[in-house]
C-alpha cells in the first residue's frame, strides 16, 4: 500500500514535469514557426529576373557566335574571387553558372537561368558537414571555413542545386590574374559562392547597400545594353522597404525546388 506522503510527492512532481515540458515545447515551436524579420538584422538574399538574363544571353550568343558564352557577371565573379578556369569542364570550378533550359513541349524556347549557391535557410550542406566547416552565418550567408574543410564532399552530394565545386586541381594552375584582396582556395577543398562576403561586410560597416561582384557587373551590362533594369538584385530580405524586400512580398518570386523545404534566399522571377 502506497503512503499518502509518497503519493503526493509522485503526483506533484509528475504534474510539474508535464507543465514544464509543455511550456518549453511551446516556446520551441513558436520560435521555429515564425522567422524573425527585424530589418536591422539583415538576411541577405538575391532576386534573379530570368527574362532579362535570357535576353542578355541571347544577345551575347548572337554577338560572339559561341553557343555557351560566359556572361559578364560570371566573369566578374571569377575575377573577384579568384575562381580558376580549366578547359576540362569536370575540373572547372564555377560559382556562377548559366544553365540553358527549356520545357519538353515542342516549339518551346530556351531560357538562360543563372545558378549560384542558393543560401538556403535550412541548408542541407551545413547539416551534413562533419567538421562544421560549412555553416549558416547569422546574416544568412552560407559560409565555408576553408581551413576546416577536409574535402570529403558530403556537402556536394547533399546540395540539391549542384552549386558546390571541388578543387580537383591546384587553383593556381588555372589562374591568369589574381585579385589581391581575396584568397584562393587550396587543392582539395570545396568552394562556392558566398555573396562576396568581403563586400557585404565592408558595406555593412559603411552603412551602404552591398553589391556582390556579379550584381555590379549585371548593372553595368544592363546599362551598356540599354535595358530598363538589371537582372540581379541583392539586398536585405528582412527589410520590407528594400527593393528585394518589396519584390519578394508583392510578386510571384519563386524558389528552386521548394518541395525540398530548403527555403533558399535566392529567388527567381519570370521563370
Amino acid at each position: 500500500m502506497i503512503s499518502r506522503r509518497r503519493f503526493l510527492i509522485i503526483a506533484g512532481s509528475a504534474t510539474g514535469a508535464v507543465l514544464l515540458g509543455s511550456s518549453q515545447l511551446e516556446k520551441a515551436l513558436a520560435s521555429a514557426r515564425s522567422e524573425s524579420s527585424d530589418p536591422s538584422k539583415p538576411l541577405w538574399g538575391m532576386i534573379v529576373d530570368v527574362d532579362q538574363c535570357t535576353e542578355c544571353m541571347n544577345q551575347l550568343v548572337a554577338e560572339t557566335g559561341n553557343p555557351d558564352p560566359k556572361p559578364e557577371c560570371a566573369l566578374a565573379c571569377d575575377r573577384e574571387n579568384n575562381v580558376p578556369e580549366f578547359r576540362e569542364k569536370k575540373w572547372d570550378p564555377q560559382w556562377f553558372k548559366m544553365l540553358k533550359v527549356r520545357s519538353n513541349l515542342e516549339g518551346s524556347e530556351y531560357l538562360w537561368v543563372p545558378l549560384l549557391c542558393n543560401h538556403c535557410r535550412h541548408a542541407p550542406c551545413a547539416q551534413v558537414c562533419p567538421t562544421k566547416a560549412t555553416f549558416v552565418r547569422e546574416d544568412g550567408i552560407i559560409m565555408i571555413d576553408y581551413h576546416r574543410c577536409i574535402g570529403c564532399r558530403y556537402c556536394m552530394i547533399a546540395c540539391p542545386y549542384n552549386a558546390r565545386n571541388f578543387n580537383f586541381k591546384e587553383p593556381l594552375d588555372g589562374l591568369t590574374e589574381i585579385n589581391p584582396e581575396t584568397d584562393r582556395r587550396g587543392h582539395g577543398v570545396v568552394e562556392k559562392c558566398h555573396f562576396c562576403v568581403h563586400r557585404v561586410d565592408r558595406a555593412v560597416k559603411e552603412g551602404v547597400n552591398p553589391t556582390p561582384a556579379c550584381v555590379e557587373a549585371c548593372q553595368k551590362e544592363a546599362e551598356k545594353r540599354g535595358f530598363e533594369k538589371s537582372a540581379l538584385i541583392f539586398g536585405n530580405i528582412n527589410d520590407p522597404n528594400s527593393e528585394i524586400g518589396k519584390i519578394i512580398r508583392t510578386s510571384k518570386a519563386k524558389q528552386l525546388r521548394p518541395s525540398l523545404g530548403t527555403e533558399p534566399k535566392v529567388y527567381y522571377v519570370n521563370l
Binding site: P180, D183, R184, H187
Partner: peptide, 14 residues
C-alpha cells in the same frame, strides 16, 4: 600560403 596571396605570387601573376 597555400591559399592566401603573397606579394611574390601576386608579382608573378599580375
Amino acid at each position: 600560403w597555400h591559399c592566401h596571396n603573397t606579394p611574390e605570387v601576386l608579382e608573378e601573376y599580375n
